[in-house]
Design a protein around this nucleic acid. Structure first.
Lengths: 196, 196
DNA sequence: TACCCCTCCTAACAACCGTTAGTTTTATTA
DNA sequence: TAATAAAACTAACGGTTGTTAGGAGGGGTA
């Protein structure tokens, strides 16, 4: 009889969530079926329900764990006593790192969070908005202190966050450039601009 | 008996595609059903098949018409005899305009093109790659002529294209900033950077 | 009026969906 | 080794999916 083999100290539920992240990333949440997932886990579909409550719980797990991760990071950055332009740089570096090393999860969250059902949908939506507001506040303070160009802060945040998600294409390409160089190029462009 | 009312000189098929764009944008391609769509069109699901061949044909229609639109634009820009930094600016302005005024289609294409089936999937993928290569070539020429900072051109293109897609969030927000101001802010950030 | 054709309808198909019930196998503990 | 708990299995549920078949309405032309 087939068994779920959990690598390392991961629970079986964690193993399922991990495989789900990969599947959802590849096919999208709605186009992924529990039978798809079961096949990848190496088990029958019904067996999954010994470990999880529903398909949607998987999405919740993915979304909220990622959100927590991002929140923890900005908690730390807010506390720091560094120039605001450096705080922005650190936020960017974190997003880039996540996009490089945890892109499956990040992409699923960004693309499929709308498929959460209430009340999780509203919860997540609020968390997302709050997170962006915190970054916006940092940018605005940077502007006030003349460290940052006088631009519309919410627009700047939108651009920063979405620009980074372009890295997903980098993953699928020939990767003529290293992850480190990629990171430096992105920072250079966003902080100093394209023009000379 | 209900009838499809086509606004203006649009064929009924065009009307269906338009409603489909909106529906796919809201729920995603996979989560949208033909019965959903039929309801919005004001007709029974089966009746749609007098005008279209399949659900996927709708996605094809949306993707390839958008692709053609973008290709036509870059055709024109390549022919122009203007500084390369200005060409880049024009490309950006076009993308921003599309994102503001045609965002439903743009978002559907960006998010759901992967659900195309062969051979359309490969076709579209190639078109996409070719389009990006053309922009990359412009950026590289701009670098060679010292109009653009010496950065990794493919990375710059990824950032440009994805940064603009952040505008989607602007649509749903309170819109404290006008479309024109939004456009100028984006260009300022991407061309001159965030830092002062 | 009689014809045709386009477009709508109802009904239904087979396939697939997420999920549950009930049972059997495997692992753990005593 | 026997008892218990955990986790797998098979079978099936009610519902939804995209799509097709066949018939009916209704406007245009002869």
């Amino acid at each position: 009889m087939a068994k779920i083999k959990s690598s390392k100290n991961a629970t079986k539920k964690e193993t399922i969530v991990e495989k789900a992240s990969k599947l959802f990333f590849e096919k999208g949440f709605s186009a992924s079926s529990m039978r798809d997932l079961a096949e990848r886990v190496g088990v029958e579909a019904a067996s999954l329900y010994n470990h999880i409550r529903s398909k949607e719980e998987l999405l919740q797990e993915i979304c909220f764990k990622a959100a927590q991760h991002y929140t923890e990071n900005i908690d730390a950055i807010e506390k720091e006593d560094t120039p605001f332009i450096q705080k922005i740089e650190k936020i960017l570096r974190f997003h880039i790192d996540q996009m490089i090393n945890n892109y499956e999860v990040v992409q699923v969250v960004d693309r499929d969070w709308k498929h959460l059902s209430e009340p999780h949908l509203t919860n997540y939506h609020n968390e997302r908005r709050a997170y962006r507001k915190r970054i916006t506040a940092i940018v605005e303070e940077g502007i006030r202190r003349k460290e940052v160009k006088d631009i519309d802060a919410p627009t700047a945040v939108l651009i920063m966050l979405h620009a980074v998600s372009g890295i997903e294409s980098w993953h699928r390409s020939v990767q003529k450039i290293s992850a480190k160089d990629l990171e430096e190029n992105i920072l250079l462009i966003l902080l100093k601009g394209l023009g000379k």
